[in-house]
Design a protein around this nucleic acid. Structure first.
Lengths: 101, 101
DNA sequence: ACTATATATCTTTATATTGCGATTAATCGA
DNA sequence: TCGATTAATCGCAATATAAAGATATATAGT
């Protein structure tokens, strides 16, 4: 993980809503039990919009930032886009931060 | 550590210069070998100014942000102000992040 | 082909952050 | 006391980030 990538990861975490999203995605069955599609796809963008209470475009941007940082990945199914955590990347980040800091 | 404190810590880390400073303070004898005062006091603000290449006021602000976040503490001796890492706080942060994330 | 739905992208506005020079306050040495 | 040194604070300009509405694109159903 390059310095620049580390920077993007930390910046991605430096907004409370993005940390909330990462947390919700940790337990989709707890936070998105009402989703009609299987949670195995991930969590649908619209569901996350609802949960935050922010506008669709704002949340779409937050998701893009988390994805660019590598914390989440997306899977497009039909007209929907499903997001889920990348646990490997998250662990790698924590390990790197421990060395770095 | 409250949510707000965690937020301040992550924000404090979200600037490369501040991460640099934390790193330099990890090995003062390596990065500030030329300091006239004993390194046991910590590292003198002016030395950090020099190392960053930024203005005195800018670095003073970065140091204040790191200190408010709890990552460093300062000790005033005469007209100088010496900074050093708070290893306990840093470890607490890493632990908290591991749970949180 | 048309309409509805989902979501990314664009544009604009508001706010926060960064950086610098100038000032201020504290301490020191002569 | 006076001038020099250190470092925090203030005021301002530049830049970055966040939020929303509007638009564009893709897919789905009729």
């Amino acid at each position: 993980m390059s310095n620049h990538e580390l920077d993007e990861m930390i910046k991605a975490l430096s907004h409370p809503v993005r940390r909330d999203i990462l947390n919700w995605l940790k337990q989709p069955e707890k936070y998105f039990a009402d989703q009609e599609h299987p949670l195995s796809f991930g969590v649908c963008a619209g569901k996350i919009d609802q949960k935050t209470g922010l506008s669709q475009s704002t949340v779409s941007n937050h998701l893009a930032i988390l994805q660019r940082a590598g914390f989440i990945s997306s899977k497009k199914v039909g007209q929907w886009n499903f997001f889920s955590r990348d646990e490997v990347a998250i662990q790698a980040f924590l390990t790197r931060l421990q060395q770095q800091l």
